[in-house]
């Protein structure tokens, strides 16, 4: 039996006249690493805020670990929302002890998680003296207190240098390999593609797509073509049976294919119709191109 760790059912939320989230549903199972993608203001943080009870939805609901959410279910979740939030006049250690107290776990893990994010040297320094990157790393460390079953990370690599970004990425991969379920909101598509097993794409509060990352990446092949007569090329391309979508871009055409067809076949299809390609480039789509395509629709 594989009950979902999290079931999100038809969440909606408005701020005044602005609709931040419309009818959002998602199911997450144990061990999934789910990337929530979307441009700024697409509703990522709103979803995570609702799941953590800091925001109240207008409609819909969610179940954590198969139950109506109560505060104790959040004790099994490590969460970083938007930005690090700590008491500025307290040291890293004292801040983390408060986290441990709230979660009802021992202080044993405090030193350990500080070591993990490389803050041991400065652990007794006041939070307000920390640099942006250190604050962010401390926030990630805080999510690891008490060995959570779920990690919720909202832009965890914000403000970090490349070395720290790599550190956080490895850390997420590491906890995920131990069966921890991860929810990761990010703009960094490359990041999500590298670490996530699943992806949900949001725009203006509406879910555009949700599924496994491979499904997304394989769901359509992307081909770029050019010819002397672009107008004629376009007319032919939109008629082709294997083309699901055709779009003009800069000085070429981008085709999304319904099925995996080799490039020779594509080339022949155009030649048969009396037009010769001057350029043909095919490749699996990156999450980034998929994401941008989806947002254009």
């Amino acid at each position: 039996m594989n009950n979902p760790v999290l079931e999100i059912q038809h969440l909606s939320k408005s701020y005044g006249h602005i609709r931040a989230l419309s009818d959002f549903s998602l199911e997450i199972h144990k061990g999934d690493v789910v990337g929530i993608l979307g441009p700024n203001g697409s509703g990522k943080t709103t979803i995570l805020g609702i799941l953590l009870d800091v925001l109240k939805p207008d409609a819909g609901g969610y179940l954590w670990f198969g139950k109506e959410p109560v505060s104790s279910s959040r004790k099994k979740i490590g969460a970083l929302l938007e930005q690090p939030l700590f008491y500025p006049y307290l040291s890293a250690v004292k801040n983390l002890k408060i986290v441990a107290d709230i979660k009802g776990v021992s202080y044993n893990s405090v030193d350990e998680v500080l070591e993990t994010v490389g803050l041991t040297d400065r652990k007794n320094g006041k939070y307000k003296t920390y640099s942006l990157g250190m604050k962010q790393r401390l926030a990630v460390a805080a999510t690891l207190i008490g060995n959570p079953e779920v990690l919720i990370l909202d832009e965890p690599t914000n403000g970090l240098d490349p070395k720290s970004i790599a550190l956080i990425r490895d850390l997420i991969a590491d906890v995920a390999s131990k069966g921890v379920t991860v929810l990761l909101a990010s703009h960094l598509l490359d990041e999500v593609q590298k670490i996530c097993s699943h992806v949900a794409i949001l725009d203006k509060g509406v879910s555009l797509h949700a599924g496994r990352v491979e499904e997304v990446l394989n769901s359509a092949l992307r081909v770029e073509i050019k010819a002397e007569d672009m107008e004629a090329l376009y007319k032919i391309a939109v008629e082709l049976a294997f083309v699901s979508e055709c779009r003009k871009e800069k000085d070429g055409l981008v085709l999304l294919l319904k099925e995996d067809i080799n490039t020779a076949e594509i080339n022949k299809s155009f030649a048969d119709r009396g037009i010769y390609l001057t350029y043909l480039s095919a490749g699996k789509r990156s999450l980034e191109s998929y994401f941008l395509d989806l947002l254009k629709e």
């Binding site: 953590l52 104790s72 099994k76 939030l85 700590f86 008491y87 986290v99 709230i102 979660k103 805080a142």
Partner: peptide, 12 residues
Amino acid sequence: YNTIRQNIMNGM
């Protein structure tokens, strides 16, 4: 400092 948010998120 929005620490109330973090307190709630942490399970209070």
